[in-house]
Amino acid sequence: MVNKNSRREKWRLARWRPWVQASFLLVWLDPLMLRWHGVCAPVFHCYSCPLATFACPIGILANSCALHIIPLLAIGVLLVVGSLFGSLICGWVCPFGFLQDLIGKIPTPKLRLPGWMGWTRYAVLVGLVLVIPYYFGDGNWYFFCRLCPAGALEASVPYSVQQSMAEKTIVWPTITKSAILIVFLLATLFTWRPWCTLFCPLGAIFSLCNYVSLVFLRFQPSNCNDCELCRDLCKHRDPSQRRGSDLRCIRCLECVQCNALSIGTVFQKQENLVEISSGPLDES
């Protein structure tokens, strides 16, 4: 009975996720017209968007690398948020993730990508966000913001519409940027959160913070009866691997419907509990 009740409560928690994401979307879309672009948000939302409240941390990192300065403010925000929540931000707060979740609800066959593809995000982070801007500046074609589909969707397209409405000369997004946006939107139909899974540099930073974040996914071996429910519930798992949480975990907390898993903090007592950050559930 106790297990049933706790399971119901956990299910309620996961059911709240779209509503939490929608609420945060209101914060990022600046209904109060605050325009605090001097401060970066911990989410992936282009600050060139006409409706952006805060700046994009990845945009700040890339531009700062191009200018050879250290963006302490952005690094501090990422450290604070990462140390508290890790990739819980990706699953519950990020507007770009929410968009992918919404598109993913369209009933099309979904392909599950192999686990090693989660490493490509680190290549994007190091290559396109840090190294290429540092050595080649922001004028080259591989500068991150020139390729970013979030920038194309949230800034370039609205800006082109804005120009056409004002009867000005329309500056269209480049072919590369438009093609990336179209491929991304199509991929969203056929796999869960392709951007977050494969390319998001912000997700890469937060998944590193999963190792040390205040909020943890906990595994209680005594409650596990190898039903594999946690693995079935996880949309980001690799079906060939036995794991409840991996590098691509966005902490959507769908898996905590399983009694062996729960969300907790590092302050809780650790008796018979195993913490899961980004590692496998078992050694097999």
Binding site: L73, G76, V266
Partner: peptide
């Protein structure tokens, strides 16, 4: 007392304060 998350939180807060107001 698990200090790593709080240590990181402290470092991040100091970085924000220094970067935002003194850097």
């Amino acid at each position: 007392f698990r200090f790593v998350p709080l240590l990181l939180f402290g470092v991040g807060t100091c970085t924000i304060l220094y970067g935002g107001f003194f850097h």
